[in-house]
Computed example of a mutant assay.
Amino acid sequence: MTQKELHPSVLKFKEFVKNNPHVIKEVRNGKATWQELFEDWYLLGEEDKRWEAIGTENGSAPEKTNESKGDWMSNIAGMVKKIDPNQMQNHINNLSQALGAIQGVISQFQGGNVAAGSVKPQEGPKNPFAFRKD
């Protein structure tokens, strides 16, 4: 049985979890799922305060209502600075290819004679609210 090779980011996350056993306890206690934790780790990074809060909290969720708009904006600005432009471009290219494939499948079901890019929406009735007056 051959095992599928994991994405490098998944391997890094697994290493992060090995170094932070409190993350495993979070999942086992039912407070979070692996998917949620991976997404947070991927977006926020390993140095985010969220990971410290998981290790120190005693069954209570961290309070986010006390954050001011300035803190929120600084967090967003920090995340934007951490974005790798090459990785973002790869994600955009993958999304573009997926949308192109979906458009191809749709055009096959619609008749397929229309060239890609020149598909125009079907025209509806001229006046969709044409009611008879009493």
Rank of each mutant, 00 (worst) to 15 (best):
Q3M: 06
E5G: 03
L6V: 12
H7E: 04
P8S: 03
P8R: 05
S9D: 15
V10N: 02
E15C: 10
F16G: 12
V17W: 02
N20K: 06
P21M: 02
V23N: 01
V23S: 00
V27P: 04
R28A: 09
N29K: 15
G30Y: 08
A32Y: 00
A32D: 08
T33Y: 02
T33L: 01
W34M: 09
W34L: 13
Q35C: 08
E36Q: 14
L37D: 00
F38R: 00
E39H: 05
W41D: 03
Y42A: 09
K49I: 09
R50Q: 09
R50L: 13
A53V: 04
A53N: 06
I54T: 03
G55R: 14
G55T: 12
E57Y: 05
E57K: 14
N58K: 15
S60G: 00
S60V: 13
S60K: 07
A61W: 10
A61E: 13
P62H: 11
N66K: 14
N75I: 00
N75P: 02
G78Q: 00
M79P: 00
V80I: 14
K81Y: 01
K82Q: 13
K82F: 01
I83C: 02
D84W: 07
M88G: 02
H91R: 05
N94P: 01
S96A: 10
Q97M: 06
Q97N: 14
Q97D: 13
A98Q: 06
L99T: 11
L99P: 05
G100R: 10
G100K: 08
G100D: 14
I102T: 07
I106L: 10
I106M: 06
I106N: 00
S107N: 14
Q108S: 13
F109I: 15
G111E: 08
G111M: 09
G111Q: 07
A116G: 06
G117S: 10
G117V: 10
G117N: 08
S118G: 14
V119T: 14
K120A: 09
P121C: 12
G124I: 12
K126S: 12
N127G: 01
A130H: 01
F131H: 03
K133F: 04
K133A: 03
D134F: 05
